[in-house]
């Protein structure tokens, strides 16, 4: 597969000495959804601004669609579509007018633009609202229109800066669906996000960025595999005493952390560990009050590579990752 974005030692220093991007190297394959994950201020947006020719490079090189960002920004601009974090639509213009304005500035012939605009409006389910002024749109509708204004000229690469931040869950899921559909049609997507779930669900590959550097990159499942397994939380009825030693002896249990009557077991392979655990519990005559199994999440990956949880995660993550994080935090302090 050919590489459509390549960055080598990319560095951005804002005067006097703020190093926003610190010598990062990465590449994005054609047809891929590539997620840049990290907290606010990690350098994701700056990287994207450099790739979309809005920011200059302090050191290093970057190419987009085969064109050097620094020496041929004009050629880069012809190959990309950009969806910024903020809404930049014209609220006094109608939905269709916004699309046609964008098409005109991208030099798309009118008939072709109309055709493409209709397709895109259908894709994001705005075909019924294209004759209304954007002023009357809901937040989610604006975001969907903003997305497709970057696509009327059929760019090779779409840059998305925090595509769903501040949106409700339904709208977010719908935007993911649209992006998956567009990607199936061949669009390469470079996306920044600070939603772990978004990076996980949508990206073929993820790079985790923190303090201007890429800490780790790979497919979401590769990254989760780094954590070596799932976590089983067991809570026993009071008065069982310290069971840590007992649990540690069970085959295929990698690690045990006790917190009161609650034990967290790290299991590289759940399937092989469970029988052992159950028979040990039965043999010991122990009574389980509660038990739950947690699959690895991007949240934990993030915690593992950066040493802290997402500073500004706007939503509690599903499936009990909060307690999972605590396990790692505790494990680290021991």
């Amino acid at each position: 597969m050919s590489k459509i974005i390549e960055a080598e030692g990319l560095t951005k220093v804002f005067p006097p000495s703020t190093k926003a991007v610190d010598g990062i190297s990465f590449s994005v394959d054609e047809g891929e959804i590539f997620g840049f994950l990290g907290p606010n201020g990690a350098g994701k947006t700056t990287t994207m601004r450099i790739l979309s020719t809005l920011s200059s490079i302090t050191a290093g090189t970057a190419t987009v669609a085969g064109h050097d960002v620094r020496s041929s920004p004009g050629a880069v601009r012809q190959s990309i579509g950009v969806v910024p974090q903020e809404i930049t639509l014209d609220s006094e213009l109608k939905g269709m007018e916004n699309l046609m304005l964008s098409a005109k500035l991208q030099h798309v012939p009118k008939q072709e633009a109309l055709q493409r605009a209709k397709e895109l409006l259908q894709l994001v389910e705005l075909d019924g609202a294209s004759d209304r002024r954007v002023r009357t749109y809901s937040g989610g509708m604006k975001r969907r229109l903003q997305l497709i204004t970057a696509l009327v000229h059929r760019p090779q690469v779409l840059f998305l800066d925090e595509p769903t931040s501040g949106l409700d869950v339904q709208t977010r899921t719908r935007i993911w669906e649209y992006l998956k559909q567009l990607n199936r049609e061949g669009l390469t997507v470079f996306m920044t996000t600070h939603y772990l779930e978004e990076a996980d669900q949508l990206s073929h590959r993820v790079a985790i960025m923190d303090h201007g550097a890429i800490k780790v990159s790979g497919t979401p499942s590769e990254l989760k595999d780094r954590l070596h397994g799932d976590v089983l939380t067991l809570e026993f009825v009071d008065g069982a005493g310290d069971l840590t030693a007992l649990l540690e002896k069970i085959e295929n249990v990698a690690e045990v952390v006790r917190k009161g009557e609650e034990y967290r077991l790290k299991l590289p392979k759940v399937e092989t560990a469970m029988p052992g655990i159950l028979s040990a519990v039965t043999a010991g005559g122990l009574k389980i009050k509660q038990m739950s199994l947690t699959k690895p999440t991007m949240d934990q990956v993030f915690l593992e590579v950066t040493g802290r949880s997402m500073r500004d995660a706007e939503e509690p993550q599903a499936n009990g990752s909060g307690s999972y994080g605590a396990l790692y935090a505790e494990a680290k302090t021991r």
């Binding site: 979309s52 601009r77 012809q78 903020e86 809404i87 930049t88 964008s102 500035l105 991208q106």
Partner: peptide, 13 residues
Amino acid sequence: MSGYLDMLSTYPI
């Protein structure tokens, strides 16, 4: 301030 000029700056114009 709204980022509109930035967006115009990403167009091939």
